[in-house]
């Protein structure tokens, strides 16, 4: 094996088995929300292991601002109706469409694929989100 090939093989060996560009990992809200979230806590490994991975998750689209029409940002939630109470932060995936590519809101269950980010996102002490996703695809 040439020196260049050895370097390449070593570099490949260092790559994670499931990179952010591999097949999406399928996850669900049951797993994302099966713990009682408390601000500042260490998030469980079964959710942090998905950080920066490409994932696929199903749920209902809801606009964060309650408005209507196409949007580049939406929340993915587990229940179409919020009547059962305000969702906890670990029950919401805050989704962002590619810049300049707004999506129409869909009426039923959708499966959203994209790069997933896990962790408290804060602004001046206020936790804004736990789960975020840069969306690449929405399937109805």
């Amino acid at each position: 094996m040439s020196a260049a090939a050895k370097i390449l093989a070593a570099a490949l060996a260092l790559l994670p088995l499931n990179s952010s560009h591999g097949d999406p990992e399928e996850i669900d809200f049951a797993s994302l929300s099966d713990f009682d979230y408390v601000e500042g806590m260490t998030l469980p490994s079964h959710v942090t292991q998905h950080n920066r991975k490409t994932i696929k998750v199903s749920g209902f689209m809801a606009r964060e601002d309650g408005g209507s029409g196409p949007t580049e940002y939406f929340m993915l939630i587990n229940d179409a109706c919020g009547c059962n109470g305000t969702p906890f932060l670990n029950e919401v995936v805050f989704c962002a469409m590619p810049a300049g590519e707004p999506t129409e809101m869909k009426p039923g269950t959708v499966t959203v694929t994209g790069q997933f980010f896990v962790g408290e996102e804060r602004d001046n002490g206020v936790v804004l989100s736990l789960y975020r996703m840069d969306v690449t695809d929405i399937e109805e």
Binding site: A62, R63, G66, G67, S68, C81, G82, C83, E104, M105, K106, P107, G108, E140
Partner: peptide
Amino acid sequence: SAVHGRLIC
């Protein structure tokens, strides 16, 4: 498929 109006609940 489409959504109509401001959905709150």
